[in-house]
Nucleic acid binder design. Structure first.
Length: 276
DNA sequence: AACGATCCCTGTTGGC
DNA sequence: TGCCAACAGGGATCGT
Protein backbone atom coordinates (compact mmCIF):
# COMPACT_ATOMS: atom_id res chain seq x y z
CA UNK A 1 0.00 0.00 0.00
CA UNK A 2 1.26 3.45 -0.76
CA UNK A 3 3.01 5.00 2.20
CA UNK A 4 5.52 7.83 2.31
CA UNK A 5 8.22 6.22 0.11
CA UNK A 6 5.65 5.20 -2.49
CA UNK A 7 4.00 8.62 -2.55
CA UNK A 8 7.36 10.37 -2.78
CA UNK A 9 8.40 8.06 -5.63
CA UNK A 10 5.10 8.88 -7.33
CA UNK A 11 5.68 12.61 -6.81
CA UNK A 12 9.11 12.44 -8.38
CA UNK A 13 7.73 10.55 -11.35
CA UNK A 14 4.98 13.09 -11.92
CA UNK A 15 7.17 16.21 -11.75
CA UNK A 16 8.58 16.03 -15.30
CA UNK A 17 5.14 15.30 -16.77
CA UNK A 18 3.08 17.88 -14.88
CA UNK A 19 5.25 20.76 -13.66
CA UNK A 20 4.80 23.81 -15.89
CA UNK A 21 2.23 22.11 -18.11
CA UNK A 22 -1.38 23.08 -18.33
CA UNK A 23 -4.36 20.79 -17.89
CA UNK A 24 -6.01 20.09 -21.21
CA UNK A 25 -8.68 17.62 -20.18
CA UNK A 26 -10.07 16.09 -17.00
CA UNK A 27 -12.20 12.95 -16.79
CA UNK A 28 -13.75 11.52 -13.66
CA UNK A 29 -14.70 7.90 -14.22
CA UNK A 30 -15.65 7.12 -10.62
CA UNK A 31 -17.39 9.84 -8.59
CA UNK A 32 -16.44 8.23 -5.29
CA UNK A 33 -12.92 9.58 -5.87
CA UNK A 34 -14.32 13.08 -5.31
CA UNK A 35 -15.93 12.42 -1.92
CA UNK A 36 -13.44 14.79 -0.21
CA UNK A 37 -14.32 17.61 -2.57
CA UNK A 38 -16.59 20.00 -0.61
CA UNK A 39 -18.78 20.32 -3.70
CA UNK A 40 -17.90 17.64 -6.27
CA UNK A 41 -19.16 19.70 -9.22
CA UNK A 42 -16.23 22.06 -8.59
CA UNK A 43 -13.54 19.49 -9.39
CA UNK A 44 -13.41 19.49 -13.18
CA UNK A 45 -13.89 23.24 -13.74
CA UNK A 46 -11.34 24.12 -11.07
CA UNK A 47 -8.71 21.91 -12.69
CA UNK A 48 -9.40 22.41 -16.38
CA UNK A 49 -7.05 24.78 -18.18
CA UNK A 50 -4.93 25.48 -15.11
CA UNK A 51 -1.17 25.75 -15.16
CA UNK A 52 0.52 23.28 -12.84
CA UNK A 53 3.04 24.68 -10.37
CA UNK A 54 5.01 22.97 -7.66
CA UNK A 55 4.37 19.32 -6.70
CA UNK A 56 4.67 18.85 -2.96
CA UNK A 57 4.02 16.02 -0.55
CA UNK A 58 2.97 15.97 3.08
CA UNK A 59 2.93 12.54 4.64
CA UNK A 60 0.95 10.39 2.20
CA UNK A 61 -0.75 13.35 0.55
CA UNK A 62 0.31 14.67 -2.82
CA UNK A 63 -0.29 18.44 -3.03
CA UNK A 64 -0.04 20.03 -6.45
CA UNK A 65 -0.25 23.79 -6.92
CA UNK A 66 -2.57 24.71 -9.78
CA UNK A 67 -3.63 28.09 -11.10
CA UNK A 68 -3.79 30.93 -8.60
CA UNK A 69 -4.07 29.64 -5.08
CA UNK A 70 -5.65 26.26 -5.72
CA UNK A 71 -4.24 22.92 -4.53
CA UNK A 72 -4.89 19.68 -6.33
CA UNK A 73 -4.88 17.01 -3.65
CA UNK A 74 -4.30 13.29 -4.10
CA UNK A 75 -4.36 10.45 -1.64
CA UNK A 76 -3.71 6.97 -3.01
CA UNK A 77 -5.50 5.15 -0.20
CA UNK A 78 -4.48 1.53 -0.04
CA UNK A 79 -4.65 0.42 -3.65
CA UNK A 80 -4.15 3.60 -5.66
CA UNK A 81 -1.37 4.37 -8.09
CA UNK A 82 -0.57 6.85 -10.78
CA UNK A 83 0.07 5.82 -14.35
CA UNK A 84 1.77 8.06 -16.90
CA UNK A 85 0.82 7.13 -20.44
CA UNK A 86 -0.23 8.47 -23.80
CA UNK A 87 -3.89 8.89 -24.67
CA UNK A 88 -3.71 5.92 -27.03
CA UNK A 89 -2.64 3.44 -24.36
CA UNK A 90 -5.43 1.06 -23.29
CA UNK A 91 -7.00 1.94 -19.99
CA UNK A 92 -6.67 -0.28 -17.00
CA UNK A 93 -10.20 -1.32 -15.95
CA UNK A 94 -9.79 0.38 -12.56
CA UNK A 95 -8.87 3.76 -13.98
CA UNK A 96 -10.75 6.35 -11.88
CA UNK A 97 -9.51 9.80 -12.90
CA UNK A 98 -7.68 10.85 -16.07
CA UNK A 99 -5.87 14.15 -16.57
CA UNK A 100 -4.37 15.03 -19.95
CA UNK A 101 -1.75 17.74 -20.29
CA UNK A 102 -1.21 20.17 -23.15
CA UNK A 103 1.75 18.00 -24.13
CA UNK A 104 -0.60 15.09 -24.78
CA UNK A 105 0.52 12.93 -21.88
CA UNK A 106 -2.04 11.35 -19.61
CA UNK A 107 -1.82 10.93 -15.86
CA UNK A 108 -4.25 8.26 -14.75
CA UNK A 109 -5.24 7.41 -11.21
CA UNK A 110 -5.87 3.69 -11.00
CA UNK A 111 -7.44 2.42 -7.79
CA UNK A 112 -9.28 -0.91 -7.59
CA UNK A 113 -10.59 -0.49 -4.04
CA UNK A 114 -11.36 3.22 -4.31
CA UNK A 115 -9.98 4.12 -0.89
CA UNK A 116 -8.03 6.88 -2.60
CA UNK A 117 -9.46 10.31 -3.30
CA UNK A 118 -8.68 13.56 -5.04
CA UNK A 119 -9.90 17.14 -4.84
CA UNK A 120 -9.05 20.68 -5.84
CA UNK A 121 -9.20 22.97 -2.82
CA UNK A 122 -9.04 26.69 -2.20
CA UNK A 123 -6.62 27.92 0.44
CA UNK A 124 -9.48 28.23 2.91
CA UNK A 125 -10.74 24.72 2.20
CA UNK A 126 -7.23 23.36 2.55
CA UNK A 127 -6.80 25.11 5.89
CA UNK A 128 -10.00 23.50 7.17
CA UNK A 129 -9.23 20.01 5.86
CA UNK A 130 -7.52 17.20 7.71
CA UNK A 131 -4.40 17.98 5.68
CA UNK A 132 -3.89 21.06 7.82
CA UNK A 133 -3.88 18.84 10.90
CA UNK A 134 -1.18 16.49 9.69
CA UNK A 135 1.87 16.14 11.89
CA UNK A 136 5.39 16.84 10.69
CA UNK A 137 6.50 14.95 7.62
CA UNK A 138 8.42 11.83 8.61
CA UNK A 139 10.98 12.27 5.85
CA UNK A 140 11.56 16.01 5.52
CA UNK A 141 10.67 17.29 8.99
CA UNK A 142 11.42 14.42 11.37
CA UNK A 143 11.21 15.83 14.93
CA UNK A 144 13.96 15.33 17.48
CA UNK A 145 13.79 12.40 19.88
CA UNK A 146 12.87 14.80 22.66
CA UNK A 147 10.01 16.25 20.63
CA UNK A 148 8.73 12.80 19.69
CA UNK A 149 8.97 11.70 23.33
CA UNK A 150 6.97 14.69 24.54
CA UNK A 151 4.22 13.77 22.08
CA UNK A 152 4.18 10.22 23.43
CA UNK A 153 4.34 11.14 27.11
CA UNK A 154 1.34 10.00 29.08
CA UNK A 155 -0.17 8.19 26.12
CA UNK A 156 -1.43 4.69 26.83
CA UNK A 157 -2.10 3.88 23.20
CA UNK A 158 0.12 1.25 21.57
CA UNK A 159 3.34 2.67 20.17
CA UNK A 160 2.50 1.35 16.72
CA UNK A 161 -0.92 2.97 16.80
CA UNK A 162 0.71 6.31 17.63
CA UNK A 163 3.18 5.88 14.76
CA UNK A 164 0.21 5.36 12.44
CA UNK A 165 -1.52 8.51 13.73
CA UNK A 166 -0.93 11.03 10.94
CA UNK A 167 -1.44 13.92 13.36
CA UNK A 168 1.51 12.73 15.40
CA UNK A 169 3.79 12.01 12.46
CA UNK A 170 2.80 12.05 8.79
CA UNK A 171 3.85 9.32 6.41
CA UNK A 172 4.07 5.93 8.11
CA UNK A 173 1.60 3.18 7.20
CA UNK A 174 1.27 -0.39 8.31
CA UNK A 175 4.27 -1.79 6.47
CA UNK A 176 6.85 0.80 7.42
CA UNK A 177 5.56 1.11 11.00
CA UNK A 178 6.28 -2.60 11.52
CA UNK A 179 9.69 -2.21 9.88
CA UNK A 180 10.56 0.81 12.01
CA UNK A 181 9.63 -0.98 15.23
CA UNK A 182 11.77 -3.98 14.26
CA UNK A 183 14.73 -1.77 13.39
CA UNK A 184 14.32 0.02 16.72
CA UNK A 185 13.93 -3.29 18.63
CA UNK A 186 10.70 -2.06 20.24
CA UNK A 187 7.49 -4.12 20.48
CA UNK A 188 4.63 -2.24 18.82
CA UNK A 189 2.11 -3.03 21.57
CA UNK A 190 4.14 -1.20 24.20
CA UNK A 191 2.19 1.77 25.55
CA UNK A 192 3.66 4.85 23.90
CA UNK A 193 4.09 6.57 27.25
CA UNK A 194 6.20 3.71 28.60
CA UNK A 195 9.06 4.25 26.16
CA UNK A 196 12.38 5.53 27.44
CA UNK A 197 14.01 8.46 25.71
CA UNK A 198 16.61 6.03 24.36
CA UNK A 199 13.88 3.87 22.84
CA UNK A 200 12.21 6.89 21.25
CA UNK A 201 15.63 7.85 19.91
CA UNK A 202 16.03 4.38 18.42
CA UNK A 203 12.61 4.70 16.79
CA UNK A 204 13.56 8.10 15.39
CA UNK A 205 16.77 6.74 13.90
CA UNK A 206 14.89 3.76 12.48
CA UNK A 207 12.28 6.00 10.82
CA UNK A 208 15.00 7.84 8.95
CA UNK A 209 16.75 4.72 7.79
CA UNK A 210 13.66 2.65 6.92
CA UNK A 211 12.07 5.43 4.88
CA UNK A 212 15.32 6.25 3.10
CA UNK A 213 15.80 2.58 2.20
CA UNK A 214 12.24 2.25 0.95
CA UNK A 215 12.62 5.38 -1.13
CA UNK A 216 15.92 4.23 -2.57
CA UNK A 217 14.19 1.07 -3.82
CA UNK A 218 11.28 2.96 -5.33
CA UNK A 219 8.89 1.77 -2.63
CA UNK A 220 7.28 -1.57 -1.86
CA UNK A 221 5.20 -3.39 -4.46
CA UNK A 222 3.41 -6.29 -2.81
CA UNK A 223 2.61 -9.45 -4.73
CA UNK A 224 -0.82 -8.14 -5.66
CA UNK A 225 0.93 -5.30 -7.53
CA UNK A 226 -1.45 -2.71 -6.18
CA UNK A 227 1.32 -0.15 -6.10
CA UNK A 228 3.51 0.52 -9.11
CA UNK A 229 5.74 3.41 -10.09
CA UNK A 230 4.17 5.95 -12.49
CA UNK A 231 6.13 4.36 -15.35
CA UNK A 232 4.60 0.95 -14.55
CA UNK A 233 7.62 -0.65 -12.95
CA UNK A 234 7.36 -2.34 -9.54
CA UNK A 235 9.06 -0.95 -6.46
CA UNK A 236 11.94 -3.16 -5.35
CA UNK A 237 11.70 -2.83 -1.58
CA UNK A 238 9.63 -5.97 -0.90
CA UNK A 239 12.64 -8.26 -0.70
CA UNK A 240 14.29 -5.95 1.82
CA UNK A 241 11.44 -6.07 4.34
CA UNK A 242 12.46 -7.51 7.70
CA UNK A 243 9.12 -8.42 9.26
CA UNK A 244 6.07 -7.28 7.26
CA UNK A 245 4.57 -10.24 5.42
CA UNK A 246 7.20 -12.60 6.83
CA UNK A 247 5.09 -14.50 9.38
CA UNK A 248 6.79 -17.78 10.29
CA UNK A 249 9.95 -16.93 8.41
CA UNK A 250 13.23 -16.59 10.32
CA UNK A 251 14.18 -13.20 11.74
CA UNK A 252 17.00 -11.80 9.65
CA UNK A 253 18.85 -10.89 12.85
CA UNK A 254 18.37 -13.85 15.21
CA UNK A 255 16.54 -16.55 13.26
CA UNK A 256 13.48 -16.75 15.50
CA UNK A 257 10.18 -17.09 13.60
CA UNK A 258 8.43 -13.82 12.88
CA UNK A 259 5.07 -13.56 14.65
CA UNK A 260 1.90 -11.95 13.31
CA UNK A 261 -0.65 -10.51 15.69
CA UNK A 262 -3.19 -7.71 15.74
CA UNK A 263 -2.63 -4.33 17.32
CA UNK A 264 -5.84 -2.31 17.41
CA UNK A 265 -7.17 -4.14 14.40
CA UNK A 266 -4.02 -3.85 12.26
CA UNK A 267 -2.03 -6.88 11.27
CA UNK A 268 1.35 -6.51 12.91
CA UNK A 269 4.57 -8.41 12.46
CA UNK A 270 7.50 -8.63 14.86
CA UNK A 271 10.37 -10.75 16.05
CA UNK A 272 9.45 -11.97 19.52
CA UNK A 273 13.11 -12.29 20.47
CA UNK A 274 14.53 -9.03 19.14
CA UNK A 275 11.67 -6.69 20.06
CA UNK A 276 10.83 -6.07 23.71
C1' DA B 1 -9.45 14.14 25.71
C1' DA B 2 -8.19 9.70 24.63
C1' DC B 3 -9.07 5.56 22.66
C1' DG B 4 -11.33 1.76 20.31
C1' DA B 5 -14.79 0.15 17.01
C1' DT B 6 -17.00 0.59 12.65
C1' DC B 7 -17.49 1.68 7.94
C1' DC B 8 -16.23 2.26 3.19
C1' DC B 9 -14.49 -0.98 -1.16
C1' DT B 10 -13.04 -5.07 -4.16
C1' DG B 11 -9.40 -8.47 -5.54
C1' DT B 12 -7.37 -12.29 -3.43
C1' DT B 13 -7.06 -16.15 -0.44
C1' DG B 14 -8.28 -20.06 2.32
C1' DG B 15 -11.43 -23.31 4.20
C1' DC B 16 -15.01 -26.58 3.54
C1' DT C 1 -13.74 -28.12 -8.16
C1' DG C 2 -16.57 -24.44 -6.69
C1' DC C 3 -18.42 -21.38 -3.57
C1' DC C 4 -18.29 -18.01 -0.03
C1' DA C 5 -16.52 -15.93 4.15
C1' DA C 6 -12.55 -13.77 5.67
C1' DC C 7 -8.99 -10.67 4.82
C1' DA C 8 -6.29 -6.59 3.38
C1' DG C 9 -6.21 -1.39 5.28
C1' DG C 10 -6.14 4.80 5.48
C1' DG C 11 -8.90 7.85 7.12
C1' DA C 12 -13.44 9.69 8.78
C1' DT C 13 -16.72 9.24 12.17
C1' DC C 14 -19.04 7.73 16.09
C1' DG C 15 -19.53 5.78 20.75
C1' DT C 16 -17.59 5.12 25.33
Amino acid sequence: MPELPEVETTRRGLVPVLAGRSVARVEVLHPRMLRRQPDPVDFVPRLSGQVVGELRRRGKFLLIEVGEGLTWVFHLGMSGRMSITTREAPRHPHTRVVVRTDAGREVRMVDPRTFGFTSVLTADELAESSIARLGPDALTALPSARELASGAAGRRVATKTLLLDQRYLAGLGNIYADEVLFAAAVAGDRPAGSLSLAEVGAIRTAIGRVLADGLEHGGTSLDDLAYLLPDGRAGRHLEYLSVYGREGKPCRRCGAPIVKARINGRSSHRCPACQA
